[in-house]
Design a protein around this nucleic acid. Structure first.
Length: 295
DNA sequence: TAGTCGTGGAA
DNA sequence: TTTCCAAGACT
């Protein structure tokens, strides 16, 4: 079975499926700017679409260009981030806007390597922006695509814990030759993973490539590897950080220390978390002893 | 490279 | 109720 043969079996049906079932997301409209696409990709990292939508709408209305965001304090970005989670992304997105203004004439570059060099943009997001915003030919490997390919090609329920060179090779072997078609394939196979080939209970009955699926052919064997996660959240530094930063987000201006102390009882852990937030640049300790979002 | 970093909804 | 996990990046 050659890669080329796989490609023609998978890409056609998935592209047809996407044409009919794609969600109507605002960052996919023809008039979506590269900046709009970039903002969406940062927000969507580890975050469900439904939660991103309202924040993205507000964000783009307020900061329609990198220059608009770069002109404001980073704390405003952190505040507007709301409860999306992983607020360091807001900081990096602001830093990204500053870099775009200072070194890219306020524009999102189309070059993959230049994208990769920007704050908050890693392998996935660089490929995604180059593909979705500039219609280039890149292997766009996110958690959805990795899962789809694991099932379709490898015949296992879930991909490895961390991305392998083999996965990249498979993804690249499936890329259509034409850049515009490849870009459409990238978003289509991702959408298939998000809507049909889901992690929990895949809707194989609705799958356009079920007849070519190695996992299906093998009888849909259950994942037998080591536990893929073990992140208890309650009582962690992460939860503590979230509580502390929420106080600052909701406050009009700087807050006194007791306002922070009240949201977490363990003083040792609370101070450690606060120090971490300050080190990350998410909170500014003021000279008068109060705390504020960064300026 | 393994750990860290939020949040909330669905199973 | 607990567990899982949702378009990762960074160190």
């Amino acid at each position: 079975m050659t890669a080329t043969h796989d490609a023609v079996r998978f890409t056609g049906p998935v592209l047809d499926w996407y044409a009919e079932h794609a969600r109507d997301l605002p960052w996919r409209t023809p008039d979506a700017t590269p900046w709009a696409v970039l903002v969406s990709e940062i927000m969507l990292q580890q975050t469900p679409v439904v939660r991103v939508l309202p924040v993205w709408e507000q964000w783009m209305r307020r900061w329609p260009t990198p220059a608009a965001l770069a002109a404001e304090p980073s704390g405003e970005a952190v505040r507007a981030w709301g409860r999306l989670g992983y607020p360091r992304r807001a900081l990096r997105l602001h830093a990204c806007a500053v870099t775009l203004v200072e070194r890219h004439d306020g524009l999102v570059p189309s070059d993959h390597d230049e994208l990769l060099a920007l704050p908050g943009i890693g392998a996935y997001t660089a490929a995604a922006v180059a593909s979705f915003a500039f219609r280039q030919r890149h292997a766009v490997l996110d958690t959805n695509v990795r899962r789809v390919l694991a099932r379709l090609i490898t015949g296992v329920e879930y991909p490895p814990k961390s991305q392998t060179v083999a996965e990249v090779a498979v993804a690249e072997s499936l890329l259509p030759t034409d850049a515009s078609v490849a870009a459409r394939w990238a978003v289509a196979v991702m959408e298939l993973g998000a809507l049909v080939c889901t992690a929990r209970s895949p809707r194989c009955v609705d799958c356009p490539v079920i007849s070519s699926c190695a996992w299906q052919r093998a009888g849909r064997p259950a994942y037998d590897g080591p536990p893929r996660r073990g992140q208890t959240y309650a009582g962690t530094d992460r939860q503590c950080r979230g509580r502390l930063l929420a106080v600052l987000r909701q406050a009009e201006g700087p807050v006194e220390k007791p306002a922070l102390d009240i949201v977490w009882s363990d003083a040792v852990q609370r101070e450690r978390a606060l120090d971490g937030l300050i080190a990350d640049g998410l909170i500014d300790p003021l000279d008068d002893g109060r705390y504020a979002l960064p300026s």
